[in-house]
Amino acid sequence: MDGAHDMGGVAGFGPIGMEPNEPVFHSEWERRAFALTLAMARPGGWTIDMARFARENRPPQDYLSKSYYEIWLAGLEQLMAERGLVSADEIAAGRPLQPAKPVPVLRADDVAAMLQRGAPTLREAKRPARFAIGARVRAKAVETAGHTRLPRYVRGHLGVIWCVHGRHVFADANARGVEDPQWLYTVSFDGSELWGAAAEPDTKISVEAWESYLEPAA
C-alpha cells in the first residue's frame, strides 16, 4: 500500500531533530505501549508484517500527525479488535465488557527466551536463485493494495544485485499469514539513477528486494 509511511525521497520534512543524551523512552506511557505491543504478539499471534500493515494502513494525515508510539498503539488496537481480543467499546469504558478469549500468554519467565529466539525469516532454498551477484535488474513499477516492502523511490529503476541473502519469508504474503518464502537480494542503485540531476555525487543506495519485486534488465 502506497501510504505516508513510504517516505524515501519525499521533500519538505525539514531538518533532522537530534536530541543529545536522549532517553530510551520519553514518558511512562511510551514504556507501557512498547511492552504491551511486544507482549500481545503472543496471544494475538500476528506476524511482524501484519503489525507493520496495521500501523501503516491509515490515512496520510493520521499517520503523519501521530508520534511513533501513538502509531504503535493504534496498530495494536486494530490488531486486537480484528481478532476479537479487545473491542473499541472496552477501551472507551476502560474495563473488560466481553469475556476473555483462551489464548497463550507471554510470562515473565519466557521473556528472555522469546527475545533471544526472535523470528528468523531464512527458509530452506528449494530452487536456485534467479539472479546472481552483479546481475542488472529493474525494480518493478507495481502498486499493491496490501503490505509491500518495495519502496516507491526505487520502482522502475535499474540496479545491480549486490548480495544474495537466501530464501526469506516474503513480507507481502506474511502480512496475510502466508510465508511464501522467496530469494532475497540486496539491490544497489546509483544515486543518479534514482534522483537524476538532484543526486549527490558518488552515492549508492540499496534496498532488500524479494525476487518477485525484480525483473531482469539488459
Binding site: 530510551v24 523512552f25 514518558s27 511512562e28 506511557w29 514504556r31 507501557r32 505501549a33 512498547f34 511492552a35 504491551l36 511486544l38 507482549a39 500481545m40 496471544p43 501513538e70 498503539l73 495494536l76 488496537e77 481480543l85 479487545v86 472496552e90 477501551i91 476502560g94 474495563r95 473488560p96 476473555a100 489464548v103 500468554v105 507471554l106 510470562r107 515473565a108 519466557d110 521473556v111 528472555a112 527475545l115
Partner: peptide
C-alpha cells in the same frame, strides 16, 4: 494517550492476556 494506554493495560491485565511482570521485564531489558 496516557489515559488510553492505562485503560488498555488495565483491560489486558484483567482479561489475563498479559503478565504485568513480563511487561516490566521487557521495559527493563531495553
Amino acid at each position: 494517550t496516557e489515559l488510553r494506554v492505562r485503560a488498555l493495560e488495565t483491560i489486558l491485565v484483567e482479561k489475563g492476556y498479559v503478565d504485568p511482570k513480563a511487561l516490566d521485564l521487557l521495559i527493563e531489558t531495553y
